[in-house]
Write a protein that binds this DNA or RNA. Structure first.
Lengths: 365, 365
DNA sequence: TGGATTTGTGAGAGCGTTATCACATGAGAG
DNA sequence: CTCTCATGTGATAACGCTCTCACAAATCCA
């Protein structure tokens, strides 16, 4: 039993009890707020506790109660706006309810996700809020659920897990965005994402998959042919995504409009567009997911699909905490909030002529 | 002792020991990796552990060892780019070293900071990484240190605490940025920050204070008079900051250049500049702290003071972990890395004529 | 062959709580 | 005047680990 130098300084219930001249049990009762205690004794204990600056050891309490008061959060990347906002809402909600948050990051790597869940479980978090990288490889989540650790899913679904899920209606949001573009006469609309393209469709992150589905449906509804080349899945390497976009933008029949599945993708696209000297919204229109604060500050300000991230994350956390506190656990529910399209300045009518014609015109002029 | 429904499912060392037909002590030794164990026994225990999917209860381990393997992180706001990057680096470094991270957020509120530290200590984190809101009200930090909880400071200093500190050389960075503007003939240079203006100078966040000092020094070195009105401290309310900036930009002798102390301030400034129809870099120049990814994507791309956030946070975490592991604790050290000015497109020569003249000229034209 | 030494194992005491149980006291009821 | 019963309080067993000790068996050296 090594001495960490702390135990000698941190008073325990025993110290308080001694100082107050009562038994440990009694001190524990008043400090823990349970069981009978005489008014006068209680005051003596309270005084002693204050005098010694007693702080209960939550680890010990967790040991004894079997609940740690900690919520584990597993997300891909905290630098991503979506998750940053979500984590903020989660920590706020958690601490308002007396819970702490243990944060882990997976980088969309299923192996790291497994590790993260294992570590969190080993630390006996009471519950988990997860944005799973995969909707297929979820054995670790099922394992967690099976040992009685409640899980709430954020942003992404895992049907087989049967857990409460909080996300937006991605299909509808993408559909609406694309429909907006179509209404402005756009016919060649590209969808750009940083999800990895390798593997089967089912291995895509569910939110991206649903956005793609919404994109396709909107095109289909308008009788526009779906061109596979216009769906860009750049993977997690920004440079790779930029390369693909550059190529697309320089091709003869480049798209007249883009739908970016998140703001970091939009950023890459913006850089490429400047590189190839295409201006928004005159030459290309753009809508992106997530109302990042910079989207309103750039010129032109970007039209975005705003997700109610804070609401989602807050609701998810409250849900988890409710499940932690009530033993009455209803069946798993899926909460799908609606995203809202914020019209700013990055969408305009499609250029009257096709890009090819425009370009040759330019050369002639 | 309530049953949380988990203990029945989670196997303990006792279960493994029983399954392997050895004593708890022996199982604990092989599972804990300490003391002697026979090769054959070890294997039996390992097999049993695997079969039962044994996962050590880290809470219990923490109780016994007095170390939790958790690092507490206290920052103002995770949505702030600086802290998002820092937290990312901290979690990465921590988990690479077998540590977990408990995250708390203070919103620059000293009261919340006190609470956060208290909760973290109650949870017996092994050490603390803090970006303190105040360099004056630090009794809670001193208290933490005094009970033997190592603290490492990030971004901000607290001289009296005598703790290892990781930050950039804010004075020099600001000095250099302002000098750059001066070299381009700018004379009316504003400093814009979102730090609260009320109270004494010493109550400012140390990094902001040092940037202001650097700003003043640069002006002074160039023989330029310091105009108090050009130092804008907007507080945490974005709208308030915008209001002040609007007023400043519309005043007769508005500044020709701005130094923003972080990227979120720059964002507000950008919006205001668009509102009042002032273009960068023709009419005003701009340098901001922090190389946020959007700064390179806007038009024109922004010239920024790039802080080596990741390096700072990684070093801070490694330092803390080293102090946690080595008992040999040297004296507190301050590590000041250098920021680098990244020249992009938001700085140009000051308009040849004063804003007033330009404006009247415009009217005449 | 006997004592010392190595090698491996088991017993058991913490760690700081929670929570149950038994017990002491005094008051009120029969 | 005993018998309950409410009211406090103290002992004490968990919780699941770590880690010191004691001790048995096997090995070594003289």
């Amino acid at each position: 039993m090594r001495d960490n130098g702390r135990s000698g300084v941190q008073p325990t219930i025993a110290h308080v009890a001694h100082a107050a001249g009562v038994s440990r049990a009694t001190a524990a009762r008043v400090l823990g707020g349970y069981g009978y205690t005489g008014a006068e004794t209680r005051q003596r204990v309270l005084d002693a506790a204050k005098r010694l600056a007693y702080q209960p050891n939550l680890l010990a309490r967790s040991m004894a109660t079997g609940r740690s008061g900690m919520i584990g959060v597993v997300v891909a990347d905290i630098e991503n706006l979506y998750f940053a906002r979500a984590i903020r809402a989660i920590t706020d909600t958690a601490s308002a309810n007396g819970f702490g948050v243990v944060l882990t990051t997976t980088d969309e790597d299923i192996k790291l996700e497994r590790d993260a869940v294992r570590v969190l479980l080993a630390n006996r978090v009471d519950g988990l809020i997860v944005s799973p990288t995969s909707s297929i490889e979820v054995d670790h989540l099922i394992g967690a659920r099976d040992i009685g650790c409640p899980i709430v899913l954020l942003d992404r679904r895992v049907p087989v897990l049967n857990a409460d899920t909080y996300a937006i209606d991605n299909f509808r949001a993408a559909h609406q965005a694309v429909a907006t573009l179509i209404k402005q006469e756009h016919r060649r609309i590209a969808l750009v994402s940083n999800a990895p393209s390798h593997g089967e469709k089912q291995y895509l992150i569910s939110s991206v998959r649903e956005r793609i589905d919404g994109y396709r449906a909107a095109l289909h509804d308008a009788g526009i042919r779906i061109v596979p080349n216009l769906i860009i899945l750049g993977g997690w390497d920004t440079e790779n995504l930029a390369r693909q976009l550059r190529k697309l933008c320089q091709s003869a029949n480049r798209p007249t409009a883009f739908l970016a599945t998140d703001s970091s993708v939009a950023l890459v696209l913006l850089k490429v567009l400047r590189e190839v000297d295409l201006s928004i919204p005159d030459q290309v229109s753009l809508i992106c997911f997530d109302d990042a604060d910079w989207t309103a500050a750039v010129t032109p300000p970007l039209t975005v699909v705003s997700q109610p991230i804070r609401e989602l994350a807050t609701a998810a956390t409250e849900d988890l905490i409710a499940r932690l506190q009530d033993e009455a656990k209803g069946p798993a529910e899926e909460t799908l909030l609606q995203a809202t399209l914020i019209n700013r300045g990055s969408v305009s009518n499609a250029p009257a002529k096709s890009p090819i014609e425009r370009q040759s015109q330019k050369v002639r002029g």
